[in-house]
Design a protein around this nucleic acid. Structure first.
Lengths: 245, 245, 245, 245
DNA sequence: AATGAATGAGCCTTCATTCAT
DNA sequence: GATGAATGAAGGCTCATTCAT
């Protein structure tokens, strides 16, 4: 009852619909069920959102809007933060968003995150807009982190070379012309990192059967995030190293 | 016509259903559409498979059966192969299965692989069986590869340590007691590797919008697989290295 | 805007509803559409007219009231007018009402007249009252014209007979006992005349396909009215003539 | 029950739908009501006719097909028949079709004919085809009758002129060049005739209130048809006569 | 082995109406 | 006088399934 008084019908419908769409998918979810769960009339959905699709779009927008607001990818970051720290924040942000029950997760391991996963798999028209508004900018953040990280690694390797070979090749010589050249290598790295995070949320049912220790639940967030961070740092390092040739 | 004569109606339905279930999902796909595409009668589906669910289970079984047969995870591997080579074969196998149009992919980038992805997201009862029969054994293969790989890395690090410190700690001393201890670290690595492969197939629509160069299409398989191999080797190495403490 | 300020909401709704009810019929027309077109709130219709039916009745009343006021059936008629002149005025009045866009017609050939046609086809309760108040009196006018016309014709025929046969039968002999006797013949004539006028408005879409030259549009009114007048005069004459026997 | 066994479900639906569409109009009629009346399932309508519109089109087609077959416009006509006789048959045909309960009429004065009337008022897409297939050819028949009739009248007038003026102008002189010239006059006559017939069926409810003696019921057919014939003969005659100038 | 006909359940949507403001 | 929110009823349509053939 308290929910009914603190939220408008419209808000209540959006929240409830997030769960139900996530559990059942767009087609299988019925507005009847949503209306019932939201203690609202079936017709009120059409009144407020025009359409089942309209409701869906509203849910999606709300999900990304509030998800990124509540768990940004830059928690605890400042101007002096190292690329590693920034990457850790980024990964942590993704896990929090995806798993925390006040984010896209849920107590029952099937949450709104699945709605997003479904959307990534076959996007409805409403998702185009989400990609532009949320996903592309978010990708840019990661790319910029990786770019700085790669620069550091290249510097380290150069130093080691110098030590070994005693050459004079200076750090500056490597130039900043790497932006375009390295995008071919950075983009796959970004995908590799994101894929690890999303997979946990997306494949939760399989993980439960096959690797229960890694279940994407709140108490595992820290551990999973740390693994992904370490794995990815090693991955990027190796990619940069093998790019020397 | 040739398709109609060389395949039984039952087979034709299974093949066609793979695509349609993949594109539309279980609920949204209709047996009418499948029947039409398979040039068969609507009722014949119920006749052959009892149920929409029965058809679905048959499709799933067929998918894994023929997918793993056509593209095993051990192509070009023999008893002398190094862990790196075996990992490369494993990754390559996944990509081939997921992307090749004669596997789970399709010419139009939305193929049967999505059916599997959907199944991972929320499994139907039919999938339990698939997990036991195909996925768990497959995971074991990867774990065993990673286990060997980790052993090699630990050996390398030990050698480096020896060089630096001149200790006598021998390789054998590390024992084989790693099975349980290291499983905590190996399992997440396995997940990290698999997640990268699957993500490409699963998030193809988003990748197309955001990182077109990495689209999971046949001509990119080699490149993508190489990236995932390098990234993952680095990842595992780093995980093993940081586990020393 | 000017429309909004010069007319009350109520009036605006009535005017707009005339068109929409005419185009779509009572059932198919929606108060939402009407409200939108009238720049008014959906609920305001129920406020002003109680009911969808209430609005409909108001529209009907308004239609007849203003239609007959603007285009009476007696334009240019006075006490000395011949029956032919009066019939011409009557026919012209019908055409003007039915076709003129400031009457029941519209620029797009589908206008409020269709609402009336629909009402004639299956009357709503509201129409009963319209019949009593407008249609019956209007019919009486036509009957009275035809009665005088028939009298003239009978006189002519009598004269011709006299010429031929040299009889003495006088005009007065025919008496005024024709009211009841001839009503059997006059009533169908009235229907024949009215049917011709109404058909043009009512069957406009078919006429457009089959006899485009006769489309009931403003520039054709004069021509069509003249045809109906001539045709009907001939018709009545023939009816009267064949009634002699 | 006998109806159920002698007719297929499809036929039964068509017959019943004719009445219901006629009574209520396309929009207001519900497939539920039709299905119920036809002792069939709601879904069977969609199965057999795809659509509510599909059913409607089928009904329309059936109506015209069987209506014109059962009551053609040429009953009792042969090669020697005079234009008057042919016109009488034409008018009679229309009345029979429109009024007879085994045609488009019904025992309750609201029959399938109203469906056609409604269609003339605002045609659905299905009606375009009906116009081409049935209405246009039917109009041509009437035009041809009127053309012959007019020729006769012109001959009569010519004879009378000859008598009065003693001129030598021969019948042949009038030529057959009238086709185009007179179409301007014949087409409106055709419309005048058809309008009278249709009006009876279409405006039955009003006629009942205003001119009960002329109700379009089976026992009045003969009388009404005779009136329309006489009225129209006079009308055409007058039109032809006034065209001399 | 296969099919056309038919069905019942359920879904999305529309609509007229009401109510509190 | 006028309105935004909300509702219950009903309608068209789709779908998986069954049955007689």
């Amino acid at each position: 009852m308290s929910e009914q008084t603190t939220m408008t019908t419209k808000q209540r419908i959006i929240k409830v619909a997030g769960d139900i769409f996530g559990q059942e998918g767009f087609k299988a979810a019925t507005i009847r069920k949503i209306a019932e769960a939201a203690n609202a009339n079936v017709a009120s959905i059409n009144y407020h959102f025009r359409d089942k699709e309209g409701l869906y779009a509203a849910v999606l927008e709300d999900l990304f809007e509030s998800g990124f607001k509540k768990f940004p990818s830059t928690i605890g970051i400042n101007a002096q933060s190292t690329p590693e720290e920034r990457l850790k924040a980024f990964i942590m942000g993704m896990f929090l968003r995806l798993i925390r029950s006040d984010g896209w997760g849920s107590t029952s391991a099937i949450g709104k995150g699945r709605l997003i996963a479904k959307e990534m798999m076959d996007p409805t028209p409403a998702f185009e807009w989400i990609i532009e508004k949320y996903i592309k900018p978010h990708k840019e953040i990661l790319i910029s982190i990786l770019s700085d990280l790669a620069k550091d690694y290249r510097y380290q390797f150069a130093q080691q070379e110098k030590l070994k070979a005693g050459t004079d090749k200076s750090y500056e010589d490597m130039g900043d012309d790497t932006n375009d050249i390295e995008m071919d290598r950075l983009l796959p790295c970004a995908i590799s990192i994101i894929s690890q995070c999303i997979y946990y949320a997306f494949a939760a049912p399989v993980i439960q059967k096959v690797a229960q220790a890694c279940m994407p639940i709140e108490e595992n967030i820290e551990r999973l995030a740390n693994h992904v961070l370490l794995f990815s740092l090693g991955g990027v390092k190796n990619i940069v190293e093998s790019a020397k040739s």
